[in-house]
């Protein structure tokens, strides 16, 4: 996959959850180029085109949407969000946080850091599938990004 043609960067440490999310996004033909990374460190490497992605990634051509899990090993979602939103070059990338719990104490912080959306993943798969479909539809097809 061309790392510069990514529609959605999915940052999710649970590969099975990632599989479900990717399946839903692809099923409705909302996004075809989905890139999955397993933790925050890898996500930052990808976004900024460093380390393993040096040379293959152009920071000027960011993904259209980042789906970011909060709880991950090494670098967590909040830290990734903070880095993206404080860097001029990456600030305008839409970031949607994904969490399993509406009781997450970090919801407030995410909004303070400039998150674009915050989704609580329902346990019920049908509702989960709906949520993924809708957010993909909104951020990838409806939302207009700065040129």
């Amino acid at each position: 996959m061309d790392h510069n043609l990514v529609d959605v960067l999915l940052v999710e440490d649970n590969s099975h959850e990632a599989e479900l999310t990717i399946r839903e996004l692809k099923k409705h033909h909302i996004a075809n180029n989905i890139f999955h990374v397993k933790d925050g460190e890898e996500a930052l490497d990808f976004i900024f085109g460093v380390e393993q992605f040096a040379g293959t990634r152009d920071i000027q051509r960011p993904p259209k949407l980042i789906l970011l899990d909060i709880h991950m090993p090494k670098v967590n979602g909040i830290e990734v969000l903070q880095t993206i939103k404080t860097d001029e070059r990456t600030r305008s990338i839409p970031v949607v946080m994904l969490t399993s719990s509406k009781e997450d104490p970090d919801i407030r912080r995410c909004y303070a850091l400039g998150v674009n959306s915050y989704i609580v993943k329902p346990v019920d798969f049908i509702r989960f599938a709906d949520a993924i479909k809708n957010l993909g539809f909104y951020w990838l097809l409806l939302n207009q990004l700065p040129a």
């Binding site: 959850e17 399993s100 009781e103 997450d104 104490p105 346990v123 798969f125 049908i126 989960f128």
Partner: peptide, 25 residues
Amino acid sequence: LESFSYSISHDLRAPLRTIIGFATM
């Protein structure tokens, strides 16, 4: 207790979602 209940809600729900998701698949 608060962080415990948060963990319960978060950590128990994630695998459940996967179980249901894969069963649905």
